[in-house]
């Protein structure tokens, strides 16, 4: 248990610190790198909760794919840092206020949990005995929560269709490679044999 506690504090401290660094970092690329570090620590916390499947998924999906694209975009953007920072300072009080309210509410939530432990005891789907949590997740995801699963699938489909609708342009006059056509081409269509008489040329 002591070891778990040590790791918990390690991961949470690092997560909080890198979360703060995301906002404070001057360079947006550094900010994204800190964000990735925060993801890592969150994954570590998941592992401490014995939710290793979620931890791995967090790394594969968020760190391995989402954050890469994020980094991709940030690197290519030409952001004026001075301007950005001016806006940051101007809006800081509002941000602090909102953050403060959210924090207060979370603390209230925590207090209520300590006072009334009922919510914690009414877990919708407790992990059955003798099953790894990956299996437990699989058992309810496609049965009990099939509706949500399919709904989420539709949301992703809309996102994909939307991205394509808004960005795909078929340019006219672009030559595209058709590998099937290339492979299907035989000597009859590809080569023309011409008998050239001497001295006449083509």
């Amino acid at each position: 248990m002591a070891l778990t506690a040590i790791f918990f504090y390690l991961f949470s401290t690092l997560a909080l610190a890198s979360g703060a660094a995301v906002i404070v970092a001057k360079n947006p690329v550094h900010a994204v790198l800190f964000l990735i570090l925060a993801f890592f620590n969150a994954a570590g916390l998941f592992i401490l909760l014995n939710a290793e499947f979620l931890a791995m998924l967090l790394i594969i999906v968020y760190v391995g794919a989402v954050a890469v694209l994020f980094l991709f975009v940030v690197m290519m953007l030409d952001v004026d840092f001075a301007e950005l920072r001016a806006g940051f300072i101007k809006n800081a009080p509002v941000g602090l206020l909102v953050g403060g309210v959210v924090l207060a509410e979370l603390i209230a939530l925590l207090g209520a949990r300590v006072i009334a432990p009922t919510p914690a005891s009414s877990v919708a789907s407790p992990i059955p005995q003798g099953v790894t949590n990956t299996e437990a997740l699989g058992q309810i995801l496609y049965t009990k929560y099939i509706y949500f699963f399919q709904g989420a699938g539709l949301v992703l489909l809309v996102a994909m269709v939307g991205a394509i609708v808004l960005t795909l342009r078929h340019k006219e006059g672009v030559k595209r490679q058709s590998i099937a056509a290339q492979v299907a081409r035989g000597p009859k269509t590809a080569v023309e044999l011409v008998k050239v008489k001497p001295g006449q040329g083509l």
């Binding site: 290793e52 998924l57 594969i60 760190v63 391995g64 890469v68």
Partner: peptide, 17 residues
Amino acid sequence: LNVGVLYLLAISSLGVY
């Protein structure tokens, strides 16, 4: 690890960084 395969996928996806 119980999720060894996922761990490998996760780690290999980090190579890009």
